[in-house]
């Protein structure tokens, strides 16, 4: 911007009074020509987004088609909303949708508050060294793959595991359909509870200590200080994270569940993402599972919009303006 401004100024002629005979320069194109290097630098990334995001987004049209692989996306016949009608009458689809929402709900109730609690605990530690050590330990599981986390759980709870071998109640936790949903939540707690503290700890470190001090001098006890200083300071972040989780309520750890679905069968272990995978990729029912995937994406987007609206109503910033 500044660049063009200085260039027009240097010609000496005020804008609008061009010397006669000179063709009106297209400022937009001229400016871009000077930015050829920037365009070239942006190109690989932009091509990536066009191909793997936008073209893929366009690929959703097969939800309205009877997609046959050898005919391709273009040639396959249109079927209107047939796939969606079939989907809404499919017991297996609703079961998968229910399982998804149930697991996400359990996560929000039992997993969501834990990083906050752990962050408050860590924040209350005066000793920097010990705190850093504990932080190193609790962040670590986040960086382990789901394959490894599931293997660890098997080594602990499975029939040949540390507890599963001796305690009969534990032995069938991994294959008991009724225990599947709590197990999924327990695993995500193990993996990501520590990692989730980072954002809260960052917010806690921003709180002005003078606030605590003057509140304490005015006679506010630890609980009142927590309620009137700490919690309001964390409120925007709690609401932001909650919005993001609500918008993503139809997504529950695809890799995690894919690894363990077969141990309990689809009735307890199928979620929307695995439904798409098993029907579409493995079952070759392309259009149908694309419809399920599109449904999931649209509902997710609507939920983000709605949750963001609610956040604005509450006077919070939300994810975007």
């Amino acid at each position: 911007m500044t660049n063009t401004l200085s260039r027009t100024r240097s010609t000496g002629a005020p804008p609008g009074r061009r010397p006669p005979g000179e063709r009106p320069r297209s400022p937009w194109r001229a400016r871009l020509r000077g930015q050829r290097t920037l365009l070239l630098l942006a190109a690989p990334g932009i091509v990536y987004f066009l191909v793997f995001h936008y073209a893929a987004l366009f690929g959703n049209v097969i939800a309205f088609k009877d997609y046959v692989p050898f005919q391709g996306v273009w040639e396959s016949p249109w079927v209107g909303f047939d796939n969606f009608e079939r989907m809404f009458q499919d017991q297996a689809f609703w079961q998968a949708a229910w399982n998804t929402v149930a697991i996400a709900g359990l996560q929000i109730v039992f997993f969501f508050p834990l990083p906050l609690a752990l962050a408050l605990l860590l924040h209350s530690l005066a000793r920097g060294r010990i705190r850093a050590l504990v932080q190193s330990v609790v962040y670590l599981p986040h960086f382990l793959s789901w394959v490894i986390v599931v293997a660890l759980f098997q080594q602990m709870l499975g029939p040949t595991g540390m507890f599963g071998g001796d305690v009969a109640f534990v032995a069938d936790v991994l294959s008991n359909p009724d225990a599947f949903k709590p197990l999924m939540v327990a695993q995500i707690i193990w993996k990501d509870c520590g990692w989730g503290t980072i954002i809260f700890l960052a917010a806690l470190s921003q709180v002005n200590n003078d606030l605590y001090e003057s509140a304490a001098l005015d006679g506010a006890g630890p609980w009142r200080r927590f309620w009137h200083i700490t919690l309001p300071a964390l409120r925007p972040i709690i609401i932001l994270l909650l919005i993001m989780r609500l918008g993503d309520i139809l997504t529950v750890g695809f890799e995690q569940i894919l690894l363990q679905r077969d141990a309990v069968g689809p009735e307890a272990g199928e979620v929307l993402d695995t439904f798409v995978y098993f029907h579409g990729v493995l079952g070759a029912d392309w259009g149908y599972s694309a419809a399920a995937g599109l449904f999931k994406g649209l509902v997710g987007a609507v939920l983000v919009f709605a949750a963001n609206r609610i956040a604005h109503r509450l006077g919070e910033q939300g994810v975007y303006k």
Binding site: G45, F49, V51, F52, H53, Y54, A55, A56, L57, F58, G59, N60, I62, V73, D273, V276, Y277, G280, V281, W286, S289, A290, G293, L294, K296, G297, A301, V304
Partner: peptide, 17 residues
């Protein structure tokens, strides 16, 4: 670029690409 944050590509269309 930011728009793709709202609509991440789903599995089947990505597979087709």
């Amino acid at each position: 670029v930011l728009f793709t944050f709202l609509f991440p590509p789903s599995m089947l269309p990505s597979y087709l690409v």
